[in-house]
Design a protein around this nucleic acid. Sequence first.
DNA 1: TTTGATTCAATTGCATGCAATGTGTATGCA
DNA 2: TGCATACACATTGCATGCAATTGAATCAAA
Lengths: 245, 245
Amino acid sequence: MTRPQAKKVYQRGSAAQMVCDELRKEILTHELKPGAPLDETSLSKRFDVSRSPIREALNRLLAERLVENLPNKGTIVANVDLENFPSFIEVFDLQQRYATRLAARNRTSVDMVKLRDLVKAFDDAVKEYDPLKILQSNFEFHLAVAEAGKNPYLVRQYKELLSEARRYIHIHLRSLETAKEKAILKGHHRDFLEAIEARDVEAADAIAHEHTLKFHDRFLEALKGQIDNDFSIEPTPRKPRLVEK
Amino acid sequence: MTRPQAKKVYQRGSAAQMVCDELRKEILTHELKPGAPLDETSLSKRFDVSRSPIREALNRLLAERLVENLPNKGTIVANVDLENFPSFIEVFDLQQRYATRLAARNRTSVDMVKLRDLVKAFDDAVKEYDPLKILQSNFEFHLAVAEAGKNPYLVRQYKELLSEARRYIHIHLRSLETAKEKAILKGHHRDFLEAIEARDVEAADAIAHEHTLKFHDRFLEALKGQIDNDFSIEPTPRKPRLVEK
DNA sequence: TTTGATTCAATTGCATGCAATGTGTATGCA
DNA sequence: TGCATACACATTGCATGCAATTGAATCAAA
């Protein structure tokens, strides 16, 4: 970005895809924060491609609900609205339970190898105290669980919800940094692994459900903490200023 | 399409949307059949706009999985692959049950008015023996049920599945035309209405589940019928021709 | 000081041009 | 006759140009 960068040229057909993937990554990791403007001209300069592939990338992200389009005014990173959190959790729980059930029912030994690796990667990320890595490996683990269920329709829908969950988590990211949380996260996915390995559908379901509930509670708790630490601000200074002057 | 058509010009910002809506309609009603080619040049001539809004429309339909993109080769109407039908039904059932549960829990009196209207519209369509109208009003009814549940996340995902269901139904559309089927369809959604009206969540769940199962069975039955009516065709005539010649 | 109209700059939405890629056909060779 | 190679055509993917719309800034008047 900052250095000249020797005119990168991409394979035909990959420019839009590359821009899309990069922007998606940055949105999910909050490098691009909700509300951040994404104007086509700047992006085309930044990625050194024309506006066409940029527009295409933005359209795809729009379909994933990761950005919002204000007609004739531009595109911004989509907000994660807290008011819909209850609705979100409701559906997320349903899908997560079902995804985990299917995994317990349909997993292969190949899936188990992958899942074990991803649990390990998660634990490593926890040890490294790297919140972004924790989120990423959490995402990958749950996605792999869903994929082990072998239902493409569910995978697609669940993946969307996982992305959304990731963005919710970023709201209370700091709470991940406390020692208490880290203790909780340690070995966090082992129980999933056991239930899926044992093909115990009901146990898998229960574990997934409990997992969602914990996410829900931690989220609300973190929000509460954030509010407690707040202090009240003056109302809009318009009227007072009039008087002062 | 066939006549000159006096150079329609659309509001700025609506061209792509209009093309997208029209193509979606034609795909869902099978005016455009699975596998049909959608080349940008022809479409731009047909809708009398440039390729840019056409490309944008196709990208949106791609995100909805209604079309498939063959890189550098073009775009075609997406196939509805029978091999995924079991996966589809599995998720569809889950979502339909949940949507109907939520409707029973959260419906307002305004929702009930709308639902009653849509049931009536469905019955009218059945009386008129108009398969396309039946499908359309069926779609609208179930979507309204989901909306009565007031969970935007579920509505979005369920809507996608409903579109997919609609395309599956088209495969056995002829079976809708038999007198037996019409008898079955008569007053088909009344039970939904009653359970939702009564806020009976468990009943709503059961009815939704049964509804899915019936859809599943009718679909398989119709497929079976189609196969029975088939007759075997000669293998590819290449070798035989060689001999004859 | 606030309200209103007017102009101006910024940004998108659409049109069009060009080059790359993949397909189908024709031709030459075994 | 069968197969490989080359060429031409069709179609996309990307670059660029232009005009419409929107928001902000400016200025005048109450």
